[in-house]
Design a protein around this nucleic acid. Structure first.
Lengths: 105, 105
DNA sequence: TAAATTTATCGTATTTTTACGATTATGAAT
DNA sequence: ATTCATAATCGTAAAAATACGATAAATTTA
């Protein structure tokens, strides 16, 4: 289809896009720090409406960084370590290469 | 001003936003792999117009991930290790915390 | 000086993102 | 069965991102 960019380039871009809003960064940090992972708790943490938070959760879920499990009338969201490991393995090489890079100009 | 989010949350979001397009990921990878760093070479690498590439370069420069130095009529772009180190130091803790995280649901 | 080269900026059109309220769907509690 | 609580989706409006051609600015070359 679209071979303008490599799969890695597209994947890195999509993962970064998922983290490209402070509300979504906040959601991830909350899921890392709190044992509970109920959607309603996340809504309470953020200065946004329930529907907007639901959209942000959907954006994170779309790229796999979080996952949601229905628990009665509630939904339990949590971190998906697999996707985070893939994210890390794609962007860490860039961090490492930068380390060895002299400022050329 | 806006204390809805922490500085770290906003900074991570801004850095991720800068990398949230495959063309910008490609630019960074090119600057890491090539010794030259002339804007024109980057334009040739991408399936985008010169003005669009210029916009992408501006987005990366805005958050400090790259820097441009005028060199005659040309401009030499290169990686800015300092900003990348800050990026790494902000997002690596998340990667590390995820590692210790059991999937809760 | 004039022409050519390189890159940024302007103006603009299209698409995507962000946000909200209203509604819907599902399950729990009464 | 009805009401309540939770969360997704719909519809929509406003803002931001993306892309391009045209133009401008700066420097080099002829």
């Amino acid at each position: 289809m679209n071979d303008s960019y490599t799969n890695t380039q597209v994947n890195i871009a999509n993962l970064c896009k998922a983290m490209a809003h402070p509300a979504r960064v906040s959601i991830v940090q909350h899921l890392l720090s709190q044992p509970d992972c109920i959607c309603g708790d996340i809504v309470d943490e953020l200065p946004l409406s329930q529907s907007t938070v639901s959209q942000h959760l959907k954006a994170l879920k779309k790229v796999g960084l979080i996952q949601g499990t229905v628990s009665g009338p509630k939904v339990c969201y949590c971190i998906n370590p697999v996707a985070w490991d893939e994210f890390s393995s794609m962007i860490t090489p860039i961090f490492n290469e930068v380390e060895t890079k002299l400022n050329c100009c």
